[in-house]
Design a protein around this nucleic acid. Structure first.
Length: 515
DNA sequence: TTCCGACAGTGGGGTCGCAAT
DNA sequence: ATTGCGACCCCACTATCGGAA
């Protein structure tokens, strides 16, 4: 199959907004793909490389390459070229990768180049990723989408399922069962504004600590322990202490879901930044380990002694968990059996407050009767975190990309400094409706003093209310801190810049506590 | 007919490892 | 030794489609 066919379909998919149409287009191409092409074609049209990220980014792709005028590249040629490229390493690797990429692009037409660059940067922007590729695969093979989706979740891989399905037919899906040693997509949580709202939405529920660390899925099969992240990357080598914990538990085959954090001498959690630093250390793990030991804390069990627990209600899985994992290795929790019981609701609020006092991020409220929905962000788990707000001044804004092209999108945010100037605390593009986006573009253009084509600097007059999750240390910004997860709540046209919050108040609000 | 679940998009900051400077 | 780049941790929020209610 020619790469041009993929580029064509990708363009067609991007051109329609109807999901049904996108799925039909994908299915059409999957049907036309030869069995040897399918393991490449399907990830490509899900916007991903089968090799994963291969060390090619914007700096390599920045300079344009003259396009070919005839489409000759086959999908398999491209895959072979990228496989070779992914293997390049060592001194001179940058230059060699650059040469290989440019060679590939020179053989591609303009449309093919656009598609390849999208794949390499992870920005195909066709309005279809894994989920719609699964639907397309189901349509192409005439298998119920739910069956394919389930197999993909349990296999942790669209490509493997596609290969099996196309080679062996629908019965191949039965092979994809929960298997110790093979990671599954972790269940994710939605957000709620308060514990009261979460309890209201869920009914009978458990309120559990939300720890601010790295999500891990731990598989043990006899002496063999494997640890995977949220995106299913294997990180066993980096977490020897987790392996040791898993080996010490009173069962030999299981899959646990939890979070890895670090505790200081007083038993309080260490800030996420330090945990991430330790977790990211790969060269000398034992030194990093000694400097900051990590502790796993578990909150779910998916399998034990060969029993698949995914379909069990959360409460029964918790019973299994408490049998397998002793107290300090489990998250604390508080159960609300009857949401109509005022005392139980009050206990849940107290638990939330106590969790924050212990230095944790918040809570996750979980329906007692919900199964483990692997790979889904269902409404059965709701996270609740405290939110802070500030009134800050817009110092500049950046031109947006994609659907925000032509709009001023990413705002530079400043607090009032001691000398009457403004101190930048970070940026945000989140929380904006299209209407607000349009409005701020107009307003900021009126206030513009400079436009370098990327950043538009403005007179510091517009005040915007910003929600954020806390401060984190920063080497990038002058105050030495930046806002974590900043997002726009609303513009404060009733306020002047002189009434915005000061750096001093921002720092004081978080003094002594690290949220 | 309206509501709501699932998806995709739009990027944020920090940290590490690696190669280039 | 320092700098720049890419990968990958953490993540919030809105718009949209299309099936459920």
């Amino acid at each position: 199959m020619l790469l041009a066919d993929l580029a064509q379909v990708s363009g067609d998919v991007a051109a329609t907004s109807a999901r049904s149409q996108k799925i039909a287009l994908l299915a059409g191409l999957f049907r036309a793909a030869a069995p040897e092409d399918a393991p490449v074609v399907i990830p490509y049209l899900a916007g991903r490389l089968p090799q994963g990220r291969i060390g090619v980014g914007w700096s390599v792709l920045r300079e344009p390459v003259a396009a070919a005028d005839r489409a000759t590249l086959t999908v398999r040629e491209v895959d072979a070229a990228l496989t070779a490229l992914a293997r390049v390493a060592g001194a001179g690797a940058q230059g060699e990768r650059r040469r290989l990429v440019r060679e590939l692009l020179a053989a591609a037409t303009e449309d093919e180049q656009r598609f390849l660059i999208g794949l390499l940067t992870g920005e195909v922007r066709q309005g279809a990723l894994d989920a719609l590729a699964v639907e397309g695969l189901a349509a192409a093979t005439q298998v119920p989408p739910a069956d394919v989706r389930r197999a993909v979740m349990l296999a942790g891989s669209l490509r493997d399922v596609a290969r099996a399905l196309l080679a062996e037919g629908p019965q191949a899906l039965a092979e994809f069962r929960l298997t110790v040693g093979r990671p599954v997509g972790p269940m994710l949580a939605q957000s709620a504004k308060s514990v009261a709202e979460a309890v209201e939405r869920l009914g009978a529920c458990a309120v559990e600590e939300k720890l601010d660390g790295i999500r891990v899925q731990v598989h043990r099969d006899g002496p063999d322990v494997r640890i995977h992240t949220r995106t299913l990357d294997e990180v066993t080598d980096r977490l020897p202490e987790v392996t040791a914990v898993a080996r010490a538990l009173p069962a030999t085959r299981f899959i646990l879901d939890g979070e890895v954090i670090a505790l200081d001498g007083a038993g309080r959690p260490v800030p996420f930044q330090r945990v991430a630093g330790r977790f990211g250390s790969r060269v000398d793990v034992s030194a990093a380990h000694a400097a900051l030991p990590l502790s796993p804390v578990f909150f779910d069990v998916l399998s034990v002694d060969g029993r698949d627990l995914l379909e069990l209600p959360g409460e029964q899985r918790h019973t299994e968990l408490s049998r397998l994992v002793p107290e300090p290795l489990r998250v604390r929790r508080c159960v609300v059996r009857d949401p109509a019981d005022a005392a139980a609701r009050a206990a849940a609020e107290d638990f939330f407050a106590a969790t924050l006092r212990r230095g944790h991020e918040g809570v996750v409220v979980k329906a007692l009767d919900a199964p483990y929905s692997a790979g889904r962000r269902g409404a059965a788990w709701l996270k609740v975190k405290p939110v802070h707000t500030l009134d800050l001044v817009v110092l500049a804004a950046e031109w947006g990309h994609g659907r925000r092209t032509g709009k001023l999108s990413n705002l530079h945010l400043g607090a009032r400094g001691p000398d009457g100037g403004f101190v930048m605390l970070g940026k945000t593009f989140k929380g904006l409706t299209d209407a607000t986006l349009g409005w701020q573009t107009e307003r900021l253009r009126e206030l513009a003093v400079r436009d370098d084509g990327h950043v538009v600097t403005v007179r510091p007059e517009l005040v915007v209310e910003i929600a954020y999750d806390g401060l984190q240390t920063s080497s990038r910004y002058p105050a030495g801190v930046t806002l974590r997860f900043a997002r726009v709540v609303r513009y404060r046209e009733d306020k002047t810049a002189a009434e915005a919050d000061t750096v001093e108040t921002v720092l004081a609000a978080h003094a002594g506590g690290e949220e």
